[in-house]
Design a binder for these strands. Structure first.
Lengths: 216, 216
DNA sequence: CGGATCATTGAAGTCCCTCAAGTCCTGTGG
DNA sequence: CCACAGGACTTGAGGGACTTCAATGATCCG
């Protein structure tokens, strides 16, 4: 990958990285920090499409379709590995193994979004929040970001609300239910999950293992 | 592609094609007919993830991850082009251009699902139904399946309801609103859209053009 | 100290869901 | 040929999960 790497980029929390509809000349891999993918509607409503963890590839749609379907923003300070979009094609020709990995990543993303769709469409608020926290926790655990059953979760309640299609108020109340049931304590940017099995059961999550991901 | 093509398959309406969690040895491209991608929840709820049109590739997730994230079912009689999953990798090595197309398709799918997520999460029932019908109509138009402002739409109301996370009853009532406003008449498997611009405006759809798609 | 952001809580309202009938159509079998 | 069952669509009524409105407290910062 070094051949295609242009450099590294460090951005502050809150920095926009890619804009929906844009055709960025640069693609990224998140090295440190966390971010947010989201779409904005004409009336100002926001749908959070996904959370970005270290290792995530950013800009696949721009690379292959020439246009992003969502915006990307840093939630914490992030450092990004920068690639040149113009090298994208030669990448496919010269490194079929890496091209395969890229497609794999795209498939994982599609898989996740089908799951998210099911959550928003079919799960209740309690199930949905439990689902979101479970997924985040499992993902973080696979990355070694969990110690003593706790992890850094640097988002605000509005982010989760926008991810689940719920109002901020109801998200808050739902979180407090999970807290009172001793299933998930998320305060001050730290999430503690004492009983993942029960949380996942509420979420109707059938697979507690993290999906294997290729790294770009 | 002929090299990888194993044969053709004709299935009746209602036939399951791929199952969630399965690792099918075969991948498909839809040649004729229409289908449905969906996920089932433990409590029996169903989320329709996408509608399948002629030209759609089926089984990418199985091809690359070894496991489908959703089930696929034929809604009408379908004829499928069958590929061998075991050839998938050599495909990437020998035909980087086609591999690129495949990734492109995956990106399009991801793009669509982000849009769908936004619909279910943020749009009202009326906007959501308008969005769904607009998308279907635009997609069909791009495939030449629209004549005189009408197209075949061989789904039932429950399918759309499950796609939008709405109840059947409310979907029905919302459809009748669009009908009374002369914006979309969908009866007997035929959809007529006399005023796409207005329908799309209700849906807060900003792009009336169909996305260019590579064919596998 | 004023302003901004975020979390929290109570109260009122509404969009949508569930329940319940009833119609229409098709296919099936006596 | 008619009775019956099943599936899809339709419509009304009531209830509930969630939204919106509103106010408060906590924390941080220039």
């Amino acid at each position: 990958m070094q051949r295609f790497k242009v450099g590294e980029l460090v951005v502050d929390a809150g920095t926009p990285i890619l804009m929906e509809g844009s055709n960025s000349p640069q693609l990224f891999t998140a090295l440190h920090g966390m971010g947010l993918r989201y779409k904005l509607l004409a009336d100002g409503k926001r749908q959070v499409v996904n959370m970005i963890f270290p290792g995530d590839f950013i800009g696949l749609q721009a690379g292959v379709m020439g246009e992003m379907g969502h915006s990307v923003e840093a939630t914490t300070k992030m450092t990004l590995c920068v690639f040149d979009r113009s090298e994208f094609w030669s990448f496919f020709k010269e490194r079929p193994d890496r091209a395969f990995s890229l497609t794999w990543l795209a498939a994982i993303e599609e898989h996740f979004m089908g799951d998210a769709l099911t959550t928003i469409g079919q799960r209740t608020a309690l199930q949905a929040v439990a689902w979101a926290l479970s997924r985040l926790f499992i993902r973080a655990d696979a990355l070694g970001m969990v110690t003593n059953g706790t992890m850094k979760l640097p988002y605000i309640q509005q982010d989760i609300a926008d991810a689940l299609g719920l109002s901020l108020v109801h998200t808050n109340k739902t979180l407090s239910v999970l807290r009172s049931r001793q299933l998930a304590h998320w305060t001050d940017g730290t999430l503690r999950v004492p009983d993942l099995a029960t949380l996942a059961e509420i979420a109707m999550l059938d697979d507690l293992s993290a999906r294997k991901r290729p790294i770009m």
